[in-house]
Design a protein around this nucleic acid. Structure first.
Lengths: 224, 224
DNA sequence: GATATGTTCAAACGATCGTTTGAATTTGGA
DNA sequence: TCCAAATTCAAACGATCGTTTGAACATATC
């Protein structure tokens, strides 16, 4: 492992430049679509630097995923989230998921990288998630569970969490096309705020509804 | 245009073999990820056949998209769909969207190809959709509109249609992972039927709800 | 059966990919 | 200040990509 190197001042700066450029590239083009040469060009470092500092393209991707997961799990902007009502917590989660629609920061890159992986999970990603992402997904599942009956199964909570993810990610993934013709939606902060309200409201309604044959069935129908 | 060739008996068979193999490959790996060499290997034809029959990889992709759109728009299995209630029509749409979760046929490939394109639309795809897909999307939007108030704007209907797409595609995209650990869901026809009931029910609830501040707002909040 | 046209085939081309190499340069501690 | 280690750099390697080529083969028309 020649790339498990000592972290010095100068190498740390290079590593950070590379990770930032790589996050953008992976978010824009996916893991396979992003090339070493475009990453080093945007980071303004030599091509061999990636193999020197991260061992391989896969190693760089692992480092990006670690940075991404750390950022996505941090609640630094609202440390009181544990005391929120379930509705407010859900609204906060949805708004956070929708953030890439307007913001062009690292967090939006991270969300997009995860969206790529939901379409065709790479081997790197699957190993990484199995090892480090359990608490992240558990948090969302627990949030969903607060809306379900006490006797809800794990399966129901997982499906509910995925359902919630899907409602958000479709807008994030299609943001560019929503802004263009023929839709021409004005994707400013106000719009996304209202969209978050809408999605959260629909989700609360859906999750809270007791199952009913007349309504085509509910989540309870998924119990074995 | 040397590839606008006369359609003979033998060339038609080759074209169909290529399109079928290409659909699988594009669905599995995306446009960039699928290689000519794997496609011709699965189709059991010569490598140069693709450029001969379709001009280029892009030309082949266009042909696949045409086949896909034609299949996705056909209502051959239920010609009475025009007479369905809005709830039944919505349930039918959702069930059709979820079909790739169990079925391993061409239709599931087509849905997956479109899912790839929502993540990073290729130039080929954008041109193609702008030219040929308007009626397809209009049909979904009209279905959503049947649940909205009469004075609903186009913008509201479009957002509602996208919202519906997102709820379905998240399960389709993650079907493989749902089947494996730690979820271990048994994705048989019964499960998908119930899932379609659940999603359709939630969607009906969400779309029908009148806007209400107490419920964090509804679709009407998106009107300008 | 001869001929022209449509189709298949193996081989190669140029470009881009991730990675490796070895020397040049910079850095940090004695 | 000096030397060993850390880091950067330009160049090349082998592999894979989409595409082209020109000959070989199959098919249809007379």
């Amino acid at each position: 492992m020649p790339w498990a190197i000592k972290v010095t001042r100068v190498s740390k700066a290079t590593r950070e430049k590379i990770i930032k450029a790589a996050s953008r590239a992976f978010a824009r083009d996916g893991y396979d679509g992003a090339s070493i040469r475009t990453i080093v060009a945007e980071a303004d470092v030599n091509q061999a630097a990636i193999n020197y500092h991260f061992g391989s393209k896969e190693g760089l991707y692992r480092a990006v995923l670690q940075t991404a997961l750390r950022a996505l799990m941090s609640d630094d902007d609202a440390p009181q989230s544990g005391k929120l009502s379930r509705e407010a917590a859900l609204r906060r989660f949805v708004r956070r998921q929708l953030r890439p629609m307007t913001a062009r920061d690292e967090l939006s890159d991270y969300v997009r990288i995860f969206n790529w992986e939901t379409l065709k999970p790479s081997l790197v990603f699957r190993k990484f998630m199995a090892r480090e992402a359990a608490p992240f997904f558990a948090a969302i599942t627990e949030l969903v569970r607060r809306f379900l009956p006490d006797n809800a199964t794990d399966k129901q909570a997982v499906v509910g969490a995925l359902w919630l993810f899907g409602q958000c990610s479709i807008f994030v993934r299609n943001a560019e096309q929503l802004a263009g013709p023929p839709f021409r939606l004005e994707l400013d902060e106000r719009f996304v705020d209202r969209l978050a309200d809408t999605i959260a409201g629909w989700a609360v309604d859906g999750l809270c509804q007791p199952p009913s044959k007349a309504r085509l069935g509910g989540l309870a129908a998924l119990a074995k």
